[in-house]
Amino acid sequence: MSSLNYEIFGNDLPYVQVTLAPSTEAMAEQGAMMYVDQHIVMSAVLGDGSASKFGVIGRFFNAIKRTFTGESMFSSVYTNTGFVPQNIAIAAPSPGQIVPIELEEQGGTIICQKGAYLAGEKGQKLQLAFQKRLRVGFFGGEGFIMQKISGRGTVFIHASGTLKQVALGPNDVLKVDTGCLVGMSSTVRYDIQYAGKLKTGIFGGEGMFYATVSGPGNVWMQSLPMSRLSRAIVGSAVAGRSKGSVLGKLYLIGIVLFVIISLFFDK
């Protein structure tokens, strides 16, 4: 199976254009399509379209499990029904980067943060990876649930900020800020470590814990986690509005009071 023929356009607000040979298919998360060529037919499939040994009920259950990983219950399959190669363009849902990963090069399986999956070849499986270490789940910055993408061929993952891939040899250890981890090979050990000194933990600005990843395998990191970006945006948005804060609050209270009073003078 040859890997996908694709090209990524843009830097911070990218999209990926995949060229599908006649009667080949590609899969992408719902709502990510930018445009498709004339002979591309789009259809929604439950979950990742893979079969379950429990039949329809099993597939439905898997699709529900999938929603916990930050994806929707259905995904879109694009089929080229024409006789010439056709293009589909899948856009990143937020500012960041799209990274193509060849699953065979990663031993067939990668673990990603919630919602990292963007698109890939048909037949790839997207499953729920549950973090079994309590402390990593609580303090690791990724929560207890991650995505496990397995199969063959190319998969596109997306994360905000700039993405960096680091190859770790056996026993190589990298300290990562919690939340900056996007993905890793399944052989990578993901753990957390106490910042060490109380002073560093409290005043260091990096939190009480940082994540450690140890090889062998690849890890992908992001420069700007979505949580940090949204905090910055919300922070400045609130700061912009809060000029003359007392007046603003009185205004809000006035509106609330008006609504309440209007309830009593309905007619």
Partner: peptide, 9 residues
């Protein structure tokens, strides 16, 4: 896994 071998082993 090791030096000179692929990252995925």
């Amino acid at each position: 896994f090791g030096a000179g071998l692929p990252t995925a082993g």
